[in-house]
C-alpha cells in the first residue's frame, strides 16, 4: 500500500470555457509539460491555448491508407492475374482501373484502422485506472465544469508555485489529487 497517499497532481476547477482557455495559456507560458485540460465538450482554440502541435495520429492514418491501397492492388493482381488468371469481359488480367474501387475501399478501411490503433497507441490506451477517476469533484467534468490538471511528475512542479499559478488564473476550486 505504499502508493496510497502519494500525490498525483493539482486539480483546478473553472466555470467557463473562456476561463479554462485563459488558464491553459498561463500554464503553457509557465513552461509546464505534464498537464492536461478536461472539458465537457471540445473547446475551440484549446489546442493553441495549450500549445499542442498537430496530432501525430495522421501519420498512422496515412501509413494505414497506403498499406490498404497498395495491399488491395497487390491482392487483386495476385488473385486475378498471377495465381489464377481470369479473363472478364475481354479486359486485361490486371488493370489499376478495375482494381481501383476495391483498393480505394481498402484505403479507407486501413486508414480507419491506422487512426484508431494510432490513437490508442499514442494515448497509451487501454488503461484500467486513472487517479482522476476516483476524485469526486472531477465527476462534474462530464457536466458543466472545466479542469486544468498539472501532474507532480512535471519537472517544473513545485507545490507553492503551481498552486499560486492556478489560484491566480481564476480557479474557483483547487485540490490535490492522490494516486
Amino acid at each position: 500500500m505504499s502508493g496510497v497517499g502519494r500525490q498525483y497532481g493539482v486539480l483546478a476547477e473553472y466555470d467557463t470555457p473562456a476561463d479554462a482557455i485563459a488558464a491553459a495559456e498561463k500554464v503553457r507560458d509557465a513552461g509546464y509539460t505534464q498537464w492536461d485540460v478536461h472539458t465537457p465538450f471540445p473547446v475551440h482554440g484549446m489546442d493553441e491555448a495549450m500549445g499542442l502541435k498537430n496530432s501525430r495520429v495522421g501519420w498512422f492514418t496515412f501509413c494505414g491508407g497506403m498499406t490498404g491501397f497498395f495491399g488491395g492492388n497487390l491482392m487483386i493482381w495476385f488473385m486475378n492475374s498471377f495465381d489464377y488468371g481470369i479473363v472478364v469481359g475481354g479486359k486485361p488480367l490486371y488493370s489499376p482501373l478495375f482494381a481501383f474501387p476495391v483498393s480505394y475501399e481498402m484505403t479507407i478501411l486501413f486508414s480507419a484502422f491506422g487512426s484508431l490503433l494510432g490513437m490508442l497507441f499514442l494515448n497509451r490506451l487501454p488503461r484500467l485506472h486513472h487517479p482522476l477517476l476516483k476524485n469526486k469533484r472531477f465527476g462534474s467534468v462530464t457536466h458543466d465544469k472545466f479542469y486544468v490538471v498539472i501532474e507532480c511528475a512535471d519537472p517544473k512542479y513545485s507545490e507553492e508555485e503551481t498552486h499560486s499559478l492556478l489560484e491566480e488564473s481564476g480557479s474557483t476550486h483547487l485540490e490535490v489529487v492522490k494516486e
Binding site: 469481359g89 475481354g90 479486359k91 482501373l97 478495375f98 481501383f100
Partner: peptide, 12 residues
C-alpha cells in the same frame, strides 16, 4: 471523373 471514365471503360 474516375466514375465517368470507369463506367465507360467497363461497359466498352
Amino acid at each position: 471523373h474516375f466514375s465517368q471514365y470507369f463506367l465507360i471503360w467497363n461497359a466498352a
